[in-house]
Design a protein around this nucleic acid. Structure first.
Lengths: 204, 204
DNA sequence: TTGCTCATGTAACACGTTACATGATTGT
DNA sequence: ACAATCATGTAACGTGTTACATGAGCAA
């Protein structure tokens, strides 16, 4: 139900075609929600069938025609009713492959775990930097007024500020965590000169 | 691909029936991975068809019979190859309903956002407490040696320690974040005596 | 000429959720 | 009497991913 409401929420601001929505997802709310183009097209089709949006073809000469979607009154109503009804559970369950891998870490061995943590760390550092100093989106899409507007609105919006802060705080916590794990791996069991205790031990 | 490897990993330790696996998921790795019973049964069926596990019926008199699954050699091989091949991307994309709701916070209004943050906070505090002082699982399943063993192994395992630490650090960061958001909501815009600036503003 | 951007879509598959059916035993 | 636990499963639906097809214009 969330992708559909993301779409309705974006269409609430302005009529858009699927491709533009995908760009918005990727550029402005990538760390909140993301979706594949095929998924967006499918969901837009469903929304149209349910009369929550309507579409019309906007012809273009040099480029492929656009199918531009607009939200309807019942779409607005559906979005509002989703937005205003607070769900009971807001702490979402986690399914994270790295965690699963770590859970079986003693079977994987120290080297593999170190490699995984190192990669994870560099990826989180990159996204932390991207959130701390967000690139100017408007500059990169000079002929796209939607992007410029979305960028400006989000920079000023109080709740978008909350989201940036959350991304910053969690990524910093994860950086600290991964660093501390790597330190512990280096400090203990690094020198295994004698053959008694190697990194991987078999379970009973 | 991850659920199947979670199953193979658990069966690596001991043969088990679907229901017991579900219990393990819920009690010991709930904050790492979770799955519905129907999903587990389906995946076990697929694994059996692909000869990565085998099953046999263990008759019981007073309770329904058990279908106990064991991992095969090719299952062990498949698990190992998954475990040892480090994927490129380890920082998983987030799809979090609360974040999406916050993104549209100015349309939802301050009261709704406050309610959402408050609920989120209490849920995260609860899970933080559960990780900080994990309940004794072995006590609650006195006739289940698998649970007792899983509990003991996980308490001693270095990588399970990493996982607990991660859950602690991220939940603490989220608690701080939600508290700071609620504070900001209370401090600013709490007294709106004059009608000039209300909490919700319409977009242009 | 190779590949990127813009643009729309289909098909198949993988993974996750919800509801339902069945039925004995045990605890409140 | 009612609910929970133990136990296995099916069916339908919802959501996310990957691969493919098509095609013009533009830049290195």
């Amino acid at each position: 139900m969330s992708l559909r409401n993301a779409l309705l929420g974006l269409l609430h601001a302005a009529p858009m075609n699927g491709y533009a929505i995908k760009t918005l997802f990727d550029e402005s709310i990538a760390f909140i929600w993301q979706a594949e183009l095929s998924q967006i097209y499918r969901e837009l089709g469903l929304l149209e069938r349910e009369l929550l949006v309507t579409s019309s073809i906007e012809p273009q000469s040099d480029r492929p025609n656009k199918r531009v979607y607009s939200i309807t009154d019942s779409g607005r109503a559906a979005f509002r009713s989703w937005l205003l009804s607070v769900p009971d559970v807001l702490a979402m369950p986690k399914r994270d492959e790295l965690m699963l891998r770590l859970f079986f870490g003693s079977m994987a061995g120290e080297d593999v775990v170190r490699e995984e943590l190192t990669r994870f760390l560099s990826q989180i550092r990159r996204m932390n930097a991207a959130v701390a100093a967000p690139p100017n989106i408007a500059e990169r899409y000079p002929n796209n007024p939607l992007m410029a507007r979305a960028d400006r609105v989000c920079r000023e919006d109080r709740y978008c500020g909350f989201l940036r802060k959350r991304a910053l705080m969690t990524s910093e916590a994860l950086i600290q965590w991964a660093e501390s794990c790597l330190e512990e791996l280096s400090s203990k069991a690094a020198p295994t000169e004698d053959g008694t205790a190697s990194s991987r031990e078999k379970e009973s």
